[in-house]
Design a protein around this nucleic acid. Structure first.
Lengths: 334, 334
DNA sequence: TTGTAAGCGTTATCAC
DNA sequence: GTGATAACGCTTACAA
């Protein structure tokens, strides 16, 4: 696979490489018709493709951005990636996808490599535990935006769901249907923004409504056991707000194995829409987040920053949407 | 964001950049202790990060591969991406993810750009209609591997499910349970390898078993209508082999809206495992493909090729696995 | 043990 | 109108 360079073209067309470069970049201000023809022929004949690496070195721009997600298999991440890739393509950029697996060490590694590769900017779903790293990036003026999470003290714009509203909407929907025992299912908070915000709002609402809180918190692999135990003790609340899709999977598994019926035995409402919610039996009522818009806005902002426009360092909140289906029992109008 | 180069380090350490380069690359064969100290200090003080673009230009290697998928949102693609990213990380590579949307034009575009960026190799789920492009890549010796699909005439190694066996396993499972009216649901074949192979095998099996074929073929957005119509005409077969997860979504939607019960009204078996199959009501019986292994093997092969090892241009088939759950009615042992 | 200089493929500056 | 030449940041013969 020998590569043909601008020099080869120049030789073949009997001109200097400068001229070829001019031609290729449309610097046409009166170039000999004949010269143009010869160059154009040479380019065709040799099947010349410019070497972008060389151009990048010169331009100090790679036309590539990075995206570091917490977990590629999470459908939210996939949608974000999709939105960003779409946007990037439109402005002739490429996207390097990195999977940090919620591991701050991997994350740091990736960021270092991405910068070493002169990647023009990054979108990150940040892990906890790298605050210093991110303030460093910000201090260096390295174009960065966050999605879904926020890191205290790091002056980086952030794009995420309005989690409080999301929980409030779910909660009201439940109370509106006459539910008074409402549990909350979440993965361990671990300083992760959406988990915290959702849990906090849940607690606040319970307090405000004079209801006790019922928190089912655990890693995904123990969540099912947890729910089984609660059930056998007869303690499972009549309604559950599930904090995200991954947790929902576990809840659904548990309920199926326990033979519990939704919504007769327990009502379910979850934050995050998932593909199958619509045709599940029963269809799952959901507070959806506009993942695609979040990704698009984040990309938009990142490219603005890359292009040197001033962008305020603020947190952009996106409005959730309640999609009522069949998984919440109506006790109010019976 | 002013960047510090090897020159800055050299100056700060009062040595030449050659020495710094030697130091950085472990060319230690007796370097003055004092020199090392000074360089190491300078690197720290200036927070020097090597510029990989410059190195790439010299090395003619970018330590980056590309992956072009047909549709990022398809769970198979996601798993392939995940597997490849995992592998790449282990060998210090990055992965550029491109979404061709089943559009040959986009695909060509991406390939051109990836090559221009001197990306070291690509994994592709190829669209139909770019055969020439791919034979060109092969002729140029550009490291390429295919996943899931195959392009006639393009000498490129390919990694995919053993589709015939998959359909055979599904079919036998159904006949074993006493089913004699078996339909096949698929998106339009469009020259796409797995769709063709699956359909062909289905037809062959019907013939061999003296059964009529019943093909439900249509784009995703009309599939639901199609099934409704069939049902109202009383023509829906008692069992359906669904060709992939996307089609399954439509089938499940249709059945739900029609109020048909699985497996009492219709039995379902699908090719491709999907996350929710396990806890769906009823749980879906499935012929799973080892997407992760497929991705890993493809990556392995690609890196071998990149590293100049001889790899035969052959099609690697992966064995499907039948996972029996609850969506197939047993008429045989009643 | 360390330094000089050429080269990777472009583009930009400034002559001719 | 076209062409030397330098520069981008790094590696690597080859010299010293």
């Amino acid at each position: 696979m020998k590569r043909v360079t601008i020099n080869d073209v120049a030789q073949a067309a009997h001109v200097s490489k400068t001229t070829v470069s001019h031609y290729l970049n449309g610097r046409y201000t009166a170039m000999g018709e004949d010269t143009k023809k010869r160059i154009s022929r040479a380019v065709r004949d040799l099947n010349y493709q410019p070497n972008v690496v060389a151009k990048s070195l010169k331009d100090k721009k790679t036309m590539t951005i990075g995206i570091i997600v917490a977990n590629i298999l999470h459908s939210f991440s996939t949608q974000i990636i999709r939105a960003i890739e779409d946007y990037a393509r439109r402005v002739n950029y490429h996207v390097i996808v990195c999977n940090a697996d919620n591991d701050p060490h991997k994350e740091e590694d990736y960021i270092r490599m991405l910068r070493a590769k002169q990647i023009d900017g990054i979108v990150v779903i940040p892990t906890e535990g790298n605050a210093g790293l991110f303030t460093g990036l910000a201090a260096d003026g390295y174009p960065t935006v966050f999605v879904d999470r926020i890191i205290e003290g790091a002056p980086v714009p952030s794009f995420m769901l309005d989690n409080e509203t999301a929980v409030r909407v779910a909660f009201s929907h439940l109370t509106g249907k006459g539910h008074s025992a409402i549990g909350f299912v979440s993965q361990p908070l671990c300083g992760i923004t959406p988990r915290h915000e959702r849990m906090d709002e849940y607690r606040r609402l319970c307090g405000k409504n004079d209801m006790g809180t019922f928190e089912i918190v655990g890693k995904l692999d123990v969540m099912e056991d947890c729910i089984s135990r609660l059930t056998s003790e007869g303690k499972l609340p009549g309604a559950l707000i599930v904090s995200n899709d991954l947790a929902l999977f576990e809840v659904l598994k548990a309920l199926k194995h326990l033979g519990l019926i939704i919504p007769d035995d327990v009502s379910i409402i979850t934050i995050d829409d998932i593909g199958f919610a619509e045709f599940f039996n029963p269809a799952i009522t959901v507070v959806a987040q506009p993942a695609f818009s979040i990704g698009t806005e984040a990309a938009w902002s990142l490219f603005d920053i890359i292009n040197g426009e001033e962008r305020p360092v603020k947190t952009h909140r996106f409005t959730p949407e309640l999609i009522i289906r069949e998984s919440v029992k109506d006790y109010a109008n019976e």
